[in-house]
Every structure is written in C-alpha cells, then in structure tokens.
Nucleic acid binder design. Sequence first.
DNA 1: AGTATGTGTTGCAGTATGCGCAACAGTGGT
DNA 2: ACCACTGTTGCGCATACTGCAACACATACT
Lengths: 247, 247
Amino acid sequence: MSQTIQRAATVLELVSIRPRTQSEVAEVLGVHRSTALRILGTLGESGLVRRRPDGTYGVGYRLTWFASLASEQFELRDLARPRIAELGAECGHTVHLAVLEDDRIVYADKIDQPGTVRMYSQIGQPVRLHTSGVAKAILAHVDAEVLERMLDGYAFERFTSTTLTSRGDFDDDLAAVRQRGWASDDGEFEDFINCVAMPVRGPDSKVIAAVSITALRAQAELDELEGLLPRLAQVCEGISKSIGWRP
Amino acid sequence: MSQTIQRAATVLELVSIRPRTQSEVAEVLGVHRSTALRILGTLGESGLVRRRPDGTYGVGYRLTWFASLASEQFELRDLARPRIAELGAECGHTVHLAVLEDDRIVYADKIDQPGTVRMYSQIGQPVRLHTSGVAKAILAHVDAEVLERMLDGYAFERFTSTTLTSRGDFDDDLAAVRQRGWASDDGEFEDFINCVAMPVRGPDSKVIAAVSITALRAQAELDELEGLLPRLAQVCEGISKSIGWRP
DNA sequence: AGTATGTGTTGCAGTATGCGCAACAGTGGT
DNA sequence: ACCACTGTTGCGCATACTGCAACACATACT
C-alpha cells in the first residue's frame, strides 16, 4: 500500500466532509505543514481539491465530474435504489445496501430518514463483519474458502455486552442465519441500535449483497423490526430478480 | 508536485471514463504492471476504486460518496445551474460556466444539448486561456498583477488561422472585450466551433466567473450567437446578483 | 489437450521521490 | 504591535516507491 496515496485519499475524505485549512490537514495526517501543502497542491493541480476564496481547501469540480462520469458503473446500486428508497419511506427507518467486493463488504447505499439520527455507516467504507446485519447476511452464504480468507486474522472485538467475540459463536450465528434466512444486529456494535438484514443474490444465485433495516432501539425494538421481514424479503427478491436471479 | 498522487489522479480519471484492466492502467501511466496494481490496490483500500466482477477496475462507492458529501460546497455552481440550464434549453446550444480559481480558470459546469456533438470541455479541467471565450471574459477584468501571473510563461500556441498568437494581440483583444462587455471564441481552438461569453461578478464586483454559449459553426455562426448577448447578459447578471453583487 | 494471453502475487535491490526542516514574507484579526 | 496562520522555498536525507523476474492461476481459443 502506498502511504502517499493513502494520505491523498484521507485528504479527499477530510475536504469532502467540509472545507479544511492546511493546518487541519497537516494535523489529521500527522505530517509537516509543507508536506500537507504539497499533497493539497498536487490534488489541486489534478482538480480533485480546490482552494476556496476563504483560504480553506474543499473538493474540486473534477471529483464531482468523475463521480458523474462513473454514475453508470453502479448497476446493482442503481437497480436497488428505488426499491430501498420505497422500503425506507414505508418503514420510516434507515435502510442500507451493502455489497461483497472480493474479500470485503462495503456499504453501497443508504436511505436516511429525515429527522432521525444519522447512522454511523459511511458509503464506500468496509462493514464491520462480526456486528453488522448486512455482513452476517452475506457471510452466512459465501463459500467456505471465501469466509476463511475474510476471517483470517479477524479480531472479534467486543463493543457491547451482546457482541459475538469468538469465531465459534460467530459460526453458530451464521448457521442460524442460514437456517432462518435473515441476520440481525442486536445492539452488537452500539447497544442503542439494532437491525435486521437479508441477502441479495446474483444471476448465479450466489449472495453478492444484502439489505438491512436499521433503527434506534428507542424507535423500534428488534422484534418490531422482525415484523418487517416479509417486506424486506420481498425487496431483496425484487433486487435479486432485477439483476438476473431466478429462483 | 507528487508524481505518485498525480498517477493516482490519472487512474481515477481513467476508471471514471470507463472501467479498465490493470494492463490498460499500466500502459497509460507508463509504469510496470506491479506498480499499477499497487496504485490500484491502495485506491481500492481507500474505496476510490473497486474491482468489478469482470476483473476490470472501476470507480469505488467512496468516490461517489465524497462527491455527494461535498455537493454543498459548490455554491456558485449551484446558484448558476438553474439559470444556465434555462438558457441552454432556450437557445439549444451548449452553455458553460467557468470559474477563476487562484491563478487559473476551470470549467465548473456545462449544459449539453441532446442530439448535439459533445464539446471538448471537461469539468474541473483548466480552460485554455487564449482561445476560450470564458477565459477572455474573465481575464479582461482581472487585476493587472493577476493577469501577469497567469500569463507568465504562457504559450500562445496556434490552433487555427484565427488563433491569437502574441501577447500584444491578446492584450488588444482583452481591451476590446473590456470595452464591449463580452468575449468570443471565433473558431480559435477548433475552427468549427464558436462561442460568446460574458463575465459573472462577485459581491465585491470583481469578476470571478463567466458563462458562454457555444455552438458548432454549422449550427450557428458567431453573429447569430451575438444575437443572444442580451439574454446572456441577463443570465450573468442574475447569477451575479444571486451571489451578492449589486450594480 | 495444448497454447497464448492476461492476471495476481511477491521478495528484493536500488534509487528516485517525498519528506521534514527552517527561515522568510505576507495577511488578517485583535 | 503582536499573534496566529498561510504560502514559499531550497536542501539533505531517509525511505517509500519502483522495476524486475518468476511463478501460479484463469480464461479463451484452437
């Protein structure tokens, strides 16, 4: 991995969230001021970053151009989007789409609800494998060797009292997910958030993605979310069919 | 300038246009296959690039997420967009918005017309200063020291028989632009394309951007585009006022 | 079945690149 | 006047990046 490129990517993330001063960038990256300015300068030359009139650095027009050019490369997300948007509108909870990419699972889309707390999840970032519903919904169905590769050296870190912290417990949970067809996050990462999730299948019936319904426990306990499973199954089947899966 | 970051930015551009194989990436960058894979690997770790099921590399979800997060950072473009979209719809020609960024001018937005030839211009990329209408509309009004900085070492390269190829001729043209209030590209970069452009002012009355109407000569000669100047002036004034300019 | 092509991986030696540093000038705010 | 921050720059140096070669694997074609 290239540390220079990683730093540049971090800069892009920083300035996407909000425009930053070059001191902030240096501080977050842990580099010298002149190093930060060099990175910003090169990103500026490339059009990915721009210096705003107030002296802070924000995202450049070129980055939005690239996103626009690339918009047709997200076939699965594009096909899923209207369905998960509708699901979100109906249930009033946050809906996530996560996809399996080689040996990791990343959030591909998210339907937020106005007036609710923004969830921790960030599109494009990897999913925490042992606590998130979407990850379990996918991992329950991947080939054994893919599962081994993904869990090789994986740290089952405890976050809450319900976090699964051993490979054995995790495997048992995956077996249960396989059996019942859906996964959950029972406050395993943050004890005030729970969700239910189900898999999405590709044309060859392999599980390639998952959709979840996530809520604050104060808004909906797990058993209430379980009541949404028939509708969630319908949405996942609709997405699967739209990308070529046939039961 | 960091060559490593420049390479990464080139990769992002390549994969935005369309997904690429790692051999293509290596070839375009002029580097060894393993170097290309390392760059792709780091961009992949950062979520900016992803390997597609067919083995090609495309844009990652995270890049689109950054663009989405940053969407509110483009105040000028956002305010201008409905106005230039309406202008484009009315006149049926391509409309550009270009902005002055420190010592360069970049395309910030573009309204294409369905059924017409796509123009060369790419959002986020610098404008060619001596041939483009938007550049002349801006340069005619910048402070003398800014103009000196921007033209220091500038090559007045000839592209067509109408290209201005000396600093003297260019200054004369800028003086004429200042006097009449609008600039043009009279087939100076590509002899089959012409345009008219006018400046956009910021709250302090300084020119910070410009808008142009561009057409194939086969569709509209320059004098026909000149007939659109009153309407273009109206649009530029509307944009200027929306960002705080008062005449 | 054999072949060709492209992909993915990896360790290592070499060097080109990226970095930190310090110092200076400028700007804006108090 | 003072302070904090920004922007610039040249230079020495350490290391991060690179090319290389070789291997295994997958796919497509014959």
